[in-house]
Amino acid sequence: MDIFLQQLINGLVVGSIYALIALGYTMVYGIMQLINFAHGEIVMIGAMVTITCINLLLGMGVQMPGPVLLLVGLLMAIPVSMFLGFAIEKVAYQPLRKAPRLAPLITAIGVSIVLQQVAMLIWGRNYRPFPSILPTEVHIIGGAAITDLQIAIIVLALLLMGGLFYLIEKTKLGRAMRATSQNPEVAKLMGVNVNHIISMTFIIGSALGAVAGVMVAANYDQAHAYMGFMIGLKAFTAAVLGGIGNIGGAVLGGILLGIIESLGSGYLGDLTGGVLGSHYKDIFAFVVLIIVLVFRPSGLMGERVAERA
């Protein structure tokens, strides 16, 4: 039982991180039907900038409690990621809005390569350890261990998701975003500045991505220039699982994927007598995805869109 609970908690933590990143993918997809391949790299840059800032502050001998240091680092990283998201859209996607659909996919891959290489030039090829500034004490709940960090990740992720829901459902900006995703042409006629809305979508998504990046780095105690790739892939899978373009779907897909992965890799070895071990963990994301899409091609919460003739 306690193993089950433990895996569930781990899955929930990883899942809420996936969900935050998946939101960035799904918002962009909802508005411009584009897979923003560079989103994973924005997550990575967020993590790297935060680590650098914290190390800088520690190097200057600043005396601050760990969580405050982390917050300062995060507040430095968010604007960097926001600017990157904004700039990427302006440079690589906006000129190609009327181009064939594969063209922006290729520029997205190009941007992704460029960001990875720039990160390597700045931060080197090796893993960057996350500075040990956070309390490490462990709470025991029902036989399962959970750290303050893990609690903080789940709570913060939930808060951010709640904030995003409020923004999209209740504010004027949110209404304009929904209008743009339904029909950009008509939204334009109604006085929505579509370019502005698309920029805002990238900026919000990138900010969420930066937070998620710091969570990943803190949770696994390290960051790496290539980390954005796999985590981006998983998050995109989560977005598709939930039904891409659907905000609630991204949250559901992310959390489900985290839990499935964690439970699956935890029990797979036992179930198969050690034949299939936890090194098959990465397969889960894809197997689940294929199964879901075969039976429900539009994802769990996606609407069944009639094919456009």
């Binding site: 892939l233 598709v240 090194h279 894809f286 995805l289």
Partner: peptide, 30 residues
């Protein structure tokens, strides 16, 4: 199994398939 899917969904499923093959090659030594 993927014929029903279109566009980006197909892309992501084929991507997953590619990764599955690679992971199996990486781990089929026991």
């Amino acid at each position: 199994p993927t014929l029903k899917l279109r566009g980006d969904y197909l892309a992501i499923v084929t991507l997953g398939f590619g990764e599955i093959i690679r992971i199996f090659m990486n781990n089929l030594d026991r």
